[in-house]
C-alpha cells in the first residue's frame, strides 16, 4: 500500500511543479512525471490495459506539447501578487477543504477495492469467458457487453479528427495567407 502513496505523492508534486515552474519545458516534464506515475498506479491496481494506453498517450501528448513550446515561447507569464490572486487561493483552499471532508466520508462508505458493489459486475466476471469466448475480460466487456459505448467512442474520435482536418485544411489557410 505504501508504494501507492509514493506514486500519488509524486503525482501531486509533479502537478504543483507543472503549475509553478517558470520554464515551460520543465513544466511539461513535470506533467510527464505526473502522467508516468499514473502508469505505475494503474499497474499497481492490476489494470495493465489502462497502463499501456496511458504510457503511449502520455508520450505522444508530451511530444506534441514540447513541439508547441519549441514553436512559441519557453517562458511562463509572470504574475504579481494581487488581491484577486489571494482571493483565488482562499477560494481554492475552501473548495479543497470541503472536497476532502466529503471525500473522507465517501471513502468510508465505499466498498473495498476489488469487491464491486454492483451485482452486474459479478455476473460479468463469472460469465464473461463463457458468453463471449474472450480470455481478456476487459475486451469482453468493451466489445461485447458494452459494445455500444465503444462504437460511439470510435465514432466520436472519427468525428473529432474530421473536425480537426476541416478546420486546419490547407485550402483555407492559403487563402488567408494571400
Amino acid at each position: 500500500m505504501i508504494d501507492l502513496y509514493i506514486w500519488i505523492g509524486l503525482m501531486i508534486i509533479g502537478a504543483i511543479v507543472a503549475l509553478e515552474a517558470p520554464d515551460l519545458i520543465s513544466a511539461v516534464i513535470s506533467l510527464g512525471v505526473c502522467g508516468f506515475s499514473l502508469v505505475f498506479i494503474f499497474l499497481r491496481l492490476h489494470a495493465p490495459d489502462l497502463a499501456i494506453v496511458q504510457i503511449i498517450v502520455e508520450t505522444l501528448s508530451l511530444i506534441i506539447l514540447i513541439a508547441a513550446i519549441l514553436r512559441t515561447t519557453r517562458e511562463d507569464t509572470q504574475e504579481r501578487l494581487s488581491l484577486q490572486k489571494v482571493a483565488l487561493w482562499l477560494g481554492g483552499l475552501f473548495f479543497m477543504t470541503v472536497f476532502m471532508l466529503s471525500a473522507y466520508r465517501i471513502a468510508h462508505e465505499m466498498s473495498r477495492f476489488g469487491h464491486p458493489l454492483l451485482r452486474m459486475a459479478a455476473s460479468y466476471l463469472d460469465m464473461g469467458l463463457m458468453k463471449t469466448g474472450a480470455a481478456n475480460l476487459v475486451a469482453a466487456v468493451i466489445l461485447d457487453f458494452r459494445a455500444y459505448d465503444t462504437l460511439g467512442e470510435a465514432t466520436v474520435l472519427f468525428t473529432s479528427v474530421i473536425g480537426v482536418m476541416a478546420v486546419l485544411r490547407a485550402v483555407g489557410r492559403k487563402k488567408r495567407g494571400g
Binding site: 499501456i52 503511449i56 505522444l60 480470455a135 481478456n136 476487459v138 475486451a139
Partner: peptide, 20 residues
C-alpha cells in the same frame, strides 16, 4: 486484444507512434 491486455485503442496508438 482479446487474449492479453491491450486492444484496438492501445495498439492503434502504438502503430501511430511508429509513424510519428
Amino acid at each position: 486484444g482479446h487474449l492479453t491486455p491491450g486492444g484496438g485503442f492501445a495498439g492503434g496508438v502504438i502503430i501511430a507512434g511508429s509513424f510519428i
